[in-house]
Simulated scan of single mutants.
Amino acid sequence: MTTPTRAVVAFGANLGDREATLLSAARELADSEGVVLRAVAPVIETPALRPHGVDPEAPAYLNTVALIDTTLSPAALHAVLRRVEDAHGRVRAERWGDRTLDLDLIVYGELQQDDPELTLPHPRAHERAFVLGPWLAVDADAVLPGRGRVSALLAALEEEGS
C-alpha cells in the first residue's frame, strides 16, 4: 500500500455562486479515489488579481485552502483538480481571468519540481496572502518547501502591505 502524501490545494472563485461552488468542489475532491480531505480553511474574500495588480472593477474572489492526504501521484492529483474545475464550468480563455473555479496544487509533500505541466511548489504561492493566510489557519506549522515557514512568509507580505 502506498503511504499517503500531504498536499495543499488552494480554491478560488469569483463568478457565479462562489460559496456553493467552493463547498461543492471540496466535496468532490473529498469523494475522489485516493484523496482524504483533512481540513478546509475558513473562506476569505479578496480582490481580483491581474498580471498588472489588483483589479477593483472585477468581481471579488472567495478563497480557501484544503489540506489533503493522497495516494495519487502529483500528475494524477492535478488531473483530478482539472476535472473538478471543468465540472464547474471553468473556462481557460484568459490568463488570470475571472473564473467559476480555480484549483491550484500548492504543495505535494516536500516535492520540488519545475515541469511545464506542473511546477511544485506553486511558483507564486509565497506571494499570495490569500493562499498563505488560509493555509496557516489550518496548519500553524506549515512550511512551503524551498521558501520556509508559511507564518514568516505571510508576515513578510503583511509588512510589505501586499
Score class of each variant (00 low, 15 high):
Ala87Lys: 01
Leu72Pro: 06
His78Val: 09
Ala76Trp: 05
Thr46His: 03
Arg83Lys: 14
Glu94Met: 09
Ser24Pro: 08
Tyr61Lys: 00
Glu28Asp: 14
Val54Trp: 06
His88Ile: 07
His52Lys: 00
Leu22Asn: 04
Ala26Ser: 13
Arg95Lys: 09
Asn63Ala: 08
Val35Thr: 07
Arg38Tyr: 13
Ala48Gln: 13
Asp31Met: 08
Leu29Pro: 07
Val43Asp: 07
Leu72Asp: 04
Ala20Cys: 00
Ala30Thr: 00
Glu28Ser: 10
Pro56Leu: 15
Leu67Gly: 01
Glu57Thr: 09
Leu62Gly: 09
Thr21Phe: 13
Ala41Asn: 03
Ala66Met: 08
Ala58Glu: 01
Ala39Asn: 13
Ser73Met: 11
Gly53Lys: 00
Asp31Ser: 08
Ala93Cys: 05
Ala20Ser: 06
Pro59His: 00
Ala20Leu: 05
Ala41Gly: 01
Ala58Leu: 02
Glu45Phe: 02
Glu19Trp: 12
Glu85Lys: 08
Pro59Gly: 06
Ala20Phe: 11
His78Ser: 15
Leu22Cys: 12
Glu28Arg: 03
Asp31Arg: 09
His78Pro: 12
Asp69Gln: 06
Leu72Phe: 00
Thr70Gly: 06
Ala93Thr: 02
Ser73Lys: 02
Leu23Lys: 02
Asp69Cys: 08
Tyr61Cys: 05
Gly53Arg: 08
Val84Gly: 10
Arg95Gly: 08
Val36Cys: 15
Ala93Gln: 11
Ala93Val: 06
Val54Asp: 06
Gly53Gln: 07
Pro56Ser: 10
Ile68Pro: 05
Ala58Tyr: 01
Leu62Met: 06
Asn63Phe: 10
Pro42Val: 01
Val91Asn: 00
Leu72Lys: 09
Gly53Thr: 05
Thr21Asp: 01
Val80Ala: 11
Ser32Arg: 10
Leu22Lys: 03
Ser32Cys: 13
Val80Ile: 10
Ala93Ser: 14
Arg90Gly: 03
His88Asp: 09
Gly53Met: 06
Thr21Leu: 01
Val91Pro: 12
Arg82Val: 14
Pro74Gln: 06
Ser32Thr: 07
